[in-house]
Design a protein around this nucleic acid. Sequence first.
DNA 1: GTCTATTATTTAGCATTCGTAACAACTGCT
DNA 2: AGCAGTTGTTACGAATGCTAAATAATAGAC
Lengths: 157, 157
Amino acid sequence: MTAPTQPSRQAFFEQWQDVLAPTAVGYRLRILSQLMGRRFQDQLEPFGLTPFHWVVLCCLWKEDGLPTSTICDRLQQVGGTLTGVLDRMEERGLVRRERDSRDRRVWRVYLTPQGAELMEVLPPRVRAVKEQALAGMSAPERANLSDLLDRAIANLS
Amino acid sequence: MTAPTQPSRQAFFEQWQDVLAPTAVGYRLRILSQLMGRRFQDQLEPFGLTPFHWVVLCCLWKEDGLPTSTICDRLQQVGGTLTGVLDRMEERGLVRRERDSRDRRVWRVYLTPQGAELMEVLPPRVRAVKEQALAGMSAPERANLSDLLDRAIANLS
DNA sequence: GTCTATTATTTAGCATTCGTAACAACTGCT
DNA sequence: AGCAGTTGTTACGAATGCTAAATAATAGAC
């Protein structure tokens, strides 16, 4: 009941602020992803790796010999995409694919010595990026962030 | 001093857990981005839009006639990338570019009526995705998440 | 045992994103 | 006018990311 002429635009924006404004979660998530991705890239690029390669390596360091489909699940990726990434990693000699002897439909992915070797140099670099991103956050705050991200992921899975 | 033979691998993993494990922040951020991106895509695809288009529209809804460079800053994008996106949006009749009369180097981007029209149908759809992602989180928790993301962005900017 | 349906993965093709480097247009200063 | 710096585009290459179709192998029904 204040300004009758041109209030609609402003009012509208406020009504949908939670999705329209630069403060919207999706918006920030996007920007943070972009920023972190670029930092990771800077760290990984000297080794000819992309962030995608990094997370695949993480999966395999934790548990070697995973089937392609499991990696897809863990990274929320579609098969076709992962095939391409694994191809490039295989070309670079970081992983090798081997048929499962029990169920010969599945291909298991193993780290090569060359891939395992990266474990010696990459983690410190990645931690540096992480530390920069989380600088100034207390341990409880970090735990909190992790928990909230986790719940969001669970909500969408 | 416990198991001398094969402890190194396990010990190593624990030492670098904060960056290697699926609980690592970068890892989760990546997955959540992926998941939300896909949901957004599902919502936007009927209109021939990508999430990228959406955030550009958000910028312009908030403040029409921004210079290209400002949009780049806000979205943490590089000029070359944005040009391509704006080209496609222009082709689809959502925006138009116009030279700034003062400084004729800068191109200002304006919403077309057709672009503004989308404001009527898109926000509810986007909110639905957001609500699904944040389901089960209280208002303080949401504020917390937003704040933490914001601080991380600031750390990397 | 053969047939059929299902599962795992790859292939092929397409659009988008993302970055770099070179270029053109324009400004403001001298 | 001439020059350095800024804005934006172009051109190129590589990587993501999806879909749909093809291939290979298994499992279950009969």
